[in-house]
Nucleic acid binder design. Sequence first.
DNA 1: CTGCTATCTTTACATTGTCAAGTTACCATC
DNA 2: GATGGTAACTTGACAATGTAAAGATAGCAG
Lengths: 191, 191
Amino acid sequence: MADNYHHGNLRQALIDAGLKIINESGEEELSLRKVAARCGVSHAAPYAHFKDKNELIEAIMDSVTDKFMSVLENAVTDKPNADAAIIAMGREYVTFFHKNPDYFTFLFGKQGIRVHLKMNKEYKDDYPPFLLLRRLYLKHLDENGLEKTYEEQEIDLIKIWSIVHGMASIACVKGIKTSVNWKNIDERLLT
Amino acid sequence: MADNYHHGNLRQALIDAGLKIINESGEEELSLRKVAARCGVSHAAPYAHFKDKNELIEAIMDSVTDKFMSVLENAVTDKPNADAAIIAMGREYVTFFHKNPDYFTFLFGKQGIRVHLKMNKEYKDDYPPFLLLRRLYLKHLDENGLEKTYEEQEIDLIKIWSIVHGMASIACVKGIKTSVNWKNIDERLLT
DNA sequence: CTGCTATCTTTACATTGTCAAGTTACCATC
DNA sequence: GATGGTAACTTGACAATGTAAAGATAGCAG
């Protein structure tokens, strides 16, 4: 309905088109005008939904993060205990970005826009995947009857996240070739 | 000499000016024309020295990598054994990027341009910091009389580099606040 | 002195982000 | 149903940018 004006769901269409461009040709090819063209609207139409190019990018990041989270949550459910869940999550974390290296660059390339990790008191506005990891970690402590100081917990979390994220980073570096099968990582994810 | 034409050392001046801009206002502010303006030359002058904007960026990356390497090599010399050297290198690795988060984004944000890690047979064209790490790691094996298969070595190296690079990544994420003192990291760098 | 070549300038053009002003369609209210 | 308001979209414009083409300059080899 509405042949020209009032696209109906332009906002989402712009996000999807942007994501598609990133998948096809990388982030540097993403421009407001191209995205608008793909949706069949004029070059300034996006400004009705996004204040900025940055705001569109943030929306796309949210979209990718949602996809990522659903993959992670999926990998975590139905695991016997927290340890198994953490390993499964770590494996999926690396695998996800290994399968979509563009997403890694996109999410973490220009850091600071969306990714906020705060390990201390305030438990909000964190990066969702990290929230999941912390949840599993606390479950792990609980299941094994462990008691750790807040600082020890934080160090553990950083350690886990560092190695997982670092591996994802390595797995995404173009041109790297290792004998590691990024779909089978076990022995090196230990709390 | 040469008031207008023949700047004398424009290539290096462009690299330095570019680096300065990145330090002052981040990579997104870097443009060929601004760099040229800072050097007092016309906006197309850089094309006599660099084929592309990318080629200038790569030159700047090389420059940063050189700085980085000299810091690392400095941290590594005069250490009693390989283990101490590895720990020192890891600490400096994180600290360097913690002090210059812009460099981290710059070097690893758009990956694939310059950073090539190859863990297998061909020992050339690697990322210099990684070459250093491998050198120290092999020294470590030697010093402790350890013998490992090639695959085990590779896994060890990835493990070490992952955690160090991952920490650097965390330490650089804007907005993160942890109780970890990024200038004192010991217990979590073990081969 | 002559010409070659690397270096730099000028001019030009397409792409892009962004703004301002106008248009259109829908919605609530009279 | 007419009316006005507002959100969604278009058109036109501008500055910044990357880049190509053509010309100018200077130093150097012969």
